[in-house]
Design a protein around this nucleic acid. Structure first.
Lengths: 237, 237
DNA sequence: AAGAGTCAGCTGCTCTAACCAACTGAGCTA
DNA sequence: TAGCTCAGTTGGTTAGAGCAGCTGACTCTT
């Protein structure tokens, strides 16, 4: 029945064509309209919130959610962390997934990427260089994220961008928490530059090779020090 | 605080290294251990259930979930349906996502796929032929799904398989419910056969082309009859 | 008259207490 | 021994009360 309740609320959103951000009926209203107690309404809304379908703001109201992939990040992160602790190569599997998607996309990109995006990517690689040469001696994670996001922006596929972002996010969170991956910032910079140059010169094969090399690099750094797993960092996220 | 509760339960699972299927404390136990009311415990569990982290069985107990991508299917399906109704090309975006992943994977497959899997794939394409020539004159969806699943099985990446399955599932559900896509079963069979043969002969480029052609075919059938959108099939799933 | 502070009213959040429904397993009956 | 019954456990649902965050109108001060 609780399952059914969620479906009825979803149906409400679909049938009324409510866009993201639209206000949903209040809890008392839903109680009456659906003929269930307040508690059941709340449990259904909580589940929908966990799926990103609904957004609840205390003292304000309930709204149609942004339909983002954020809940997927949560689930994926947890799954990867749990698998990692059980000795599975879940982090590597996540990396392979990212590699598959980006490899499959880069071909469509080479040659058709707008000049404006190329300029943004140039600026990002420059920033990477600066950060690598800076006081920390490492490329900031956010810069790497921005590069990969900017790369596929021109495809005009919102879902694609969000899924890639979700994968990146889950991967990064787990890597940061659990594994001490040695980084060579210069190599990182060089590889991103190579990807960018390949895409700029419309060289599909070179672009694919560059992407594979980039991920292959991460993969090696990931598998090699299998013993650097943090034993018990008291997972809290 | 509700957010915090979920995290504490997740932490419980992680810290105790509980594998999928392990029993979790009962609701009264969680009440006591976490110092909150039963209601709050239940709402947190509901949310975790929606994320696939926890599995609740009435009259039996609560267990660590299978960590499958099932909740992602729900979310993705809803998101795609909602987007479709709002006039977005969400179904096309989903298809592009599938195409990107499979295109990126096929290269790693060509040449390294075991003979046993090739045999399975042969049998599946044969079944497609039989179904196309059968009374329905159409390839069963389940057969198509099985083909794509069997294709990537040998990569030994559980996450990959599940994500692909999730994408396939969401796509198929939305397509079935919302859009009347004309099918030519013979073309479908031929394209799957081509993919299989290309992979068998270790011809990477041919395999990539075959995959792209397969998806390109679906894409065309999807974009062309933009007017066949079912106006209001009273979404219920 | 204009601004800031206050309060009433919405909203969602949490708790308590009770009963319903599904499942298990021990004990009883045939 | 085989099957049934019933008590105990677990999650599912309802009800009612009070708490907490936000909004907007009202009032008091300047």
């Amino acid at each position: 029945m609780a399952r059914d309740l969620q479906e009825r609320i979803k149906k409400l959103i679909i049938d009324q064509r409510l866009p993201s951000g639209s206000p949903l009926p209040t809890e008392p209203e839903l109680m009456e309209r659906l003929g269930v107690s307040r508690n059941s309404v709340r449990e259904a809304l909580k589940a929908l919130q966990a799926m990103g379908i609904v957004e609840i703001r205390h003292g304000f109201g309930t709204y149609v959610g942004p339909m983002s992939m954020a809940p997927m990040i949560e689930g994926l992160t947890f799954r990867t962390v749990a698998g990692h602790y059980r000795g599975e190569d879940s982090l590597l599997q996540l990396l392979e997934l990212r590699e598959a998607v980006e490899t499959g996309l880069i071909a469509r990109l080479a040659g058709s990427i707008p000049a404006a995006d190329l300029a943004d990517l140039d600026a990002l690689v420059d920033r990477m260089d600066a950060e690598a040469a800076g006081p920390d001696g490492a490329v900031r994670a956010e810069t790497d994220r921005a590069f990969h996001a900017a790369l596929y922006r021109c495809l005009g596929n919102r879902l694609l961008g969000e899924v890639l972002e979700a994968f990146w996010d889950a991967f990064h969170r787990v890597r940061t928490d659990l594994v001490d991956v040695p980084q060579d910032p210069k190599v990182t910079c060089r590889q991103h530059r190579e990807i960018l140059d390949a895409v700029r010169s419309s060289d599909v094969l070179r672009a694919e090779r560059a992407i594979r090399e980039h991920f292959g690099n991460i993969r090696v750094r990931l598998s090699a020090p299998a013993s650097t797993t943090v034993p018990h960092p008291s997972y809290d996220r």
